[in-house]
Amino acid sequence: MTLGERWTKGTSMRVRVDADACHGHQSCAIAAPEVFGADDYGNAVVLIEGDIPTELEAKVRRAEGNCPERAITIEG
């Protein structure tokens, strides 16, 4: 994606959690509660389908950087 496309389309950040690697620390939900939550067992779920709103991108990066299991992947 060129800089111009980013400007017009946004950054299209997406995020996913590797369910096998996640052990329910909930560090992601603490860093970005708008984006990450918990299932009935306390394991992480991504609450936003599709692109992450631009204003939440920094929080998502922080969530990724706080996961002790490195279970979060940011795409885009």
Binding site: H25, G65, E69, R70
Partner: peptide
């Protein structure tokens, strides 16, 4: 602290089950 992958609750399959209550 921006990035804090601390392991106060351990890591892996035995990660502290009570961590949400402890916090």
């Amino acid at each position: 602290r921006e990035h804090n992958r601390h392991v106060a609750f351990g890591a892996g399959i035995h990660r502290c089950a009570g961590s949400n209550l402890a916090r």
